[in-house]
């Protein structure tokens, strides 16, 4: 897990398209489970985030934010 960066997912906006997990250069995101409110899977961080923000810019639903810890 990352020491500096992490991601936050807005489960209500996410439609589970999976772009973020496929585009992440570190493979740090996986689509995980199904959000019970929307019925879509949401991404979950499993690896180290280097803060490239690709997932954020390529998220078509403005559902994912890369944030600096602390």
């Amino acid at each position: 897990m990352s020491k500096v960066f992490t991601v936050e997912v807005n489960g209500l906006l996410c439609k589970g398209c999976g772009i973020c997990s496929e585009i992440c250069p570190r493979g740090a995101l996986v689509m995980d489970g199904v959000n019970s409110e929307t019925g879509y899977p949401n991404p979950k961080i499993v690896g180290e985030c280097v803060g490239c923000k690709l997932c954020m810019w390529f998220c078509p639903d403005q559902a994912i934010v890369v944030i600096k810890k602390g």
Binding site: W57, P60, D61
Partner: peptide, 21 residues
């Protein structure tokens, strides 16, 4: 009015991100 009415994975949202950035 969110989430948008676009299909999951629709690239329209990415264009919006670029424009807003």
């Amino acid at each position: 009015v969110l989430p948008t009415a676009f299909c999951p994975g629709c690239f329209n949202g990415i264009v919006m991100n670029a424009l807003f950035q």
